[in-house]
Design a protein around this nucleic acid. Structure first.
Lengths: 145, 145
DNA sequence: ACTATAGTTTAGCCAATGCTAAATTTACCC
DNA sequence: GGGTAAATTTAGCATTGGCTAAACTATAGT
């Protein structure tokens, strides 16, 4: 083949980043769901499918299907036609998501980003920041706040 | 229903963020591909399926299938069994991705994050930062660097 | 207690993104 | 120029995450 050379040098290293992003995507939805369920329980005492669908902007049936997967994953528990609860693992994931979310959103605000943008962007970013980056953001936040 | 109250207050606003994230995911893969193809062309003069598969960490067949979609989307052009090229739109998207990537990665480095983490995290974050946040990052970068 | 309505679930569809295995094509080398 | 190895493509499959429409259940209100 033409151009055969020292290709592939650091390809494996590079691919690791993409692999992690794909893995992140699998847990991303789960994190969004449990975080939202935790919020709903705290706000109103219970989480219902309709509210989840409304806040996430998806159809009811989609929520049902996803919740089934989350139940299989041991994050959520639910009886048919009843409200939705988080398991111990579910709460753990929700708390971790909230922690990240708070740091990222606070950080963006401290950086001078507007409130609305900070809210939206942090929602997307929180699933892709490592602990090291979170630590750096927290440090910045402590120094500037 | 129990608990009927002033629910849904800002639900539509909240759901917008999640909608944007889902939309982002659709373009995310496309951006990763065109950026990588642009890099390969610059590095070695051509982009081949195998190299893309290797760097992205996916199977060859997956690359073929995705390239077909990108071709339909007008970002990539390719003859069967030949190397891969970017269209004008493809280059535009690649350049924009590189621009974002550079800002985010540079920003993380300036924030004190290690090189390896900065590289990995920026790969995940670049697709979820708004122009406003990019501007704030660039500002920080200019002040601190 | 009945009925209307709100909420939930099921069924069946689609597109995207991944995989493996088999077939095909290209290109290199002798 | 023909054989072989590498690259590419095709075929077929699975999962995720979305949708609509129809069926079912539970609750509230009269």
């Amino acid at each position: 083949m033409a151009l055969a050379g020292k290709r592939n040098s650091s390809a494996k290293l590079r691919s690791a980043a993409f692999r992690r992003i794909r893995a992140d995507h699998l847990t991303e939805l789960a994190e969004d769901y449990v975080e939202l369920i935790a919020d709903l329980i705290d706000e109103r005492g219970e989480a219902r499918g309709t509210d989840i669908a409304l806040r996430l902007g998806v159809a009811n049936a989609t929520v049902v299907k996803t919740l089934k997967r989350l139940q299989d994953a041991g994050l959520v528990s639910q009886e048919p036609y009843r409200a939705i609860f988080l398991t111990g693992d579910g709460w753990k994931m929700a708390e971790d998501g909230r922690r990240k979310h708070k740091i990222v959103e606070g950080f963006l605000l401290a950086l001078g980003v507007g409130a609305e943008t900070a809210r939206i962007d942090s929602e997307g970013i929180e699933h892709h920041v490592s602990e090291e980056t979170l630590k750096a953001m927290a440090r910045f936040l402590a120094r500037s706040g």
